[in-house]
Design a protein around this nucleic acid. Sequence first.
DNA 1: GACAAATGATACTAATATGGTATCATTAAT
DNA 2: ATTAATGATACCATATTAGTATCATTTGTC
Lengths: 130, 130
Amino acid sequence: MKLITRNTDYALRALCYISKNKDIVTVDELVKKLGVPGPFMRKILQQLNKRSILDSFKGQGGGFKLKVTPENIYVIEIMRIFQGKVALNRCFLKKDVCPNKGKCALRKKISIIEENVFKQLKEITIASLV
Amino acid sequence: MKLITRNTDYALRALCYISKNKDIVTVDELVKKLGVPGPFMRKILQQLNKRSILDSFKGQGGGFKLKVTPENIYVIEIMRIFQGKVALNRCFLKKDVCPNKGKCALRKKISIIEENVFKQLKEITIASLV
DNA sequence: GACAAATGATACTAATATGGTATCATTAAT
DNA sequence: ATTAATGATACCATATTAGTATCATTTGTC
């Protein structure tokens, strides 16, 4: 059971690094400083660019920089980008027709746990990690 | 992100069914009542038997019954059986040598969330689901 | 004792998610 | 022109999850 997957983790580390270092950072620098695999890191940064969390610059002297201030980058948002909808309580019964849909005690309990997790996740920003 | 996997889910449903129905229940009955795949359900029940949560009886008229009262079967225990150690906060950095081990802000925050999840999970028993 | 109905044990397979790599195209500074 | 960067995209490897298949064993019933 993982709350955070590797790509989310690398994304967060990269964002932390960029936010506390100089303006523009290349993939190569991140690879060296964070010890993460290059092409994978690159793909991750490209996704962050597409989602307008990073700005990218091509060509010599290019790289990535933050497009949003660290205070406004939420961990849960990054999780959603790399892990899709964050939900703990999906039902497994065939055809999605659970015999006691709506009344399922387990689902209810997990929903409560989920809400708490969200409440806490929503308070974590990149700024709060640096 | 799944808190509970399918085998855990089926195990919980089976335990709930057994605990609120007659003494001894066969795999076949569970398959019909719960709409889950037979051989898979069987494997799950065998594991619960090995872990002494169910008792099993071979031969005609055999099946499974609870070995522990529903009040004493904890969801988190079932999760551990099928999903291993329940932990949200493992670190991904190569070689497990995180440069800022111990000081990692993300890890700390996730640990707090994890503790809360545990606290809530630990209160859920089969009895509380029935 | 033969048979049927149940689980025990174990090996195998299929599907999905995760964690990447590889490659070619594009851009921009020197 | 060359070089150093990202953009886009296709592909591959591994692990996890979700099962199936099969043979052995036990036990009640006729």
